[in-house]
């Protein structure tokens, strides 16, 4: 990023010569950036005004009647699932924002812990230990990526539904609904992530064995080497793992749609948000013929904000994650 930033010419010359040639460039950059941010801008503005503000001026809903009532109602625990009336059916389903967030955070934490462990251990074993079969195991794991993930979607769903002795199933997986609409369906797939293992392996390949050998001379065992020597050096990789996991799971829609559509208590944010606006509008006793724009925008802001905030704080690592450790070699 720094290469284009060069020392400025002296201030006198830069004041004398205004860079007219660059005006079109700036116009294009600024306008295009604003276009990119436009849907988010409308969302943020729309979430802070009244429904009238939006209906009167939908292309830029300036909040003349500024209020954070939408946020208050949606963020209040339980507020959105106590209403009756038109949306009673939906309301009973407990589309409660805090609940959705906690569900998602629980899932993210679980995956961070488990995939963090499997990735670092897998990376270590495949990189630093010498054993027969290392290349074979590595190739075997990589080969799973040959076919696109879409192929595993349906059979994994069937696997969840036909899991033996779960959710009313018998030993052959018949009779019940297995893990469908239950927590395990959201928690037991993809705990060994080949891409992350690969990422850790590549990074560990670049760390000389000398560190570990020195520690072993001092009497350290494998786990001590792993935790005291490698982990501190792998911090950037962990940040990339954290970001990838967080953004992917926070926005995860398809898999939860497949397996927990019938249980609002387990839904993650990206799936449950659809029901929130409606239940919130019902809780606020908005007239049912009026689409709850304000609530839709508020839910949108709350759902989108965490990933964007994460990006603003950890920009450097995001860039690293996109570029991939692979491309850098």
């Amino acid at each position: 990023m720094d290469r284009a930033v060069q020392l400025p010419t002296t201030s006198r010359t830069s004041r004398r010569k205004f860079p007219w040639g660059k005006v079109p460039l700036y116009v294009i950059l600024i306008v295009s950036s604003l276009i990119m941010l436009y849907p988010l801008l409308v969302m943020v503005l729309g979430s802070m005004g009244s429904n009238d503000d939006y209906i009167n001026n939908p292309n830029l809903p300036i909040p003349y009647h500024f209020s954070i009532a939408y946020y208050q109602l949606i963020m209040t625990p339980g507020a959105t699932n106590q209403s009756g009336g038109l949306y009673a059916g939906v309301a009973k389903s407990q589309a409660d924002f805090l609940r959705l967030v906690l569900n998602t955070l629980f899932r993210i934490t679980w995956y961070l812990v488990i995939t963090g462990y499997t990735s670092v251990v897998g990376g270590y074993v495949l990189s630093k230990l010498r054993w027969k079969g290392r290349e074979g195991v590595f190739t075997y794991m990589l080969s799973s990526m040959t076919l696109p993930g879409i192929i595993y979607l349906i059979p994994t769903y069937v696997m969840m539904a036909r899991w033996p002795l779960a959710g009313g199933n018998d030993i052959f997986g018949q009779g019940g609904s297995g893990f469908i609409n239950q927590w395990p369906a959201l928690l037991i797939t993809g705990l060994v992530n080949v891409y992350f293992i690969f990422m850790f392996r590549q990074t560990m390949n670049a760390i000389p064995i000398d560190f570990e050998e020195a520690a072993r001379v001092d009497g350290a065992n494998t786990f001590q080497c792993l935790f005291n020597i490698y982990l501190p050096m792998l911090k950037p990789v962990f940040v990339v793992l954290f970001i990838n996991t967080f953004v992917t799971l926070w926005n995860d829609y398809i898999w939860p749609l497949f397996v927990v559509s019938g249980n609002h208590d387990l839904m993650p944010v990206a799936l449950g948000f659809q029901f929130l606006a409606m239940t919130a509008a019902a809780a606020a006793h908005l007239p049912p013929n009026l689409p709850p724009y304000g609530f839709q925008f508020t839910v949108g802001v709350l759902t989108v904000a965490p990933c964007i905030l994460l990006f603003l704080f950890l920009q450097r690592y995001f860039v690293e994650g996109v570029q991939g450790f692979a491309i850098k070699g």
Partner: peptide, 21 residues
Amino acid sequence: FYRTAWFIPGLTAASVMANIV
């Protein structure tokens, strides 16, 4: 700023933003 503006849409939940669009 420009880089951030161009990168941010990719971080949003596809389901949520499609709803807004």
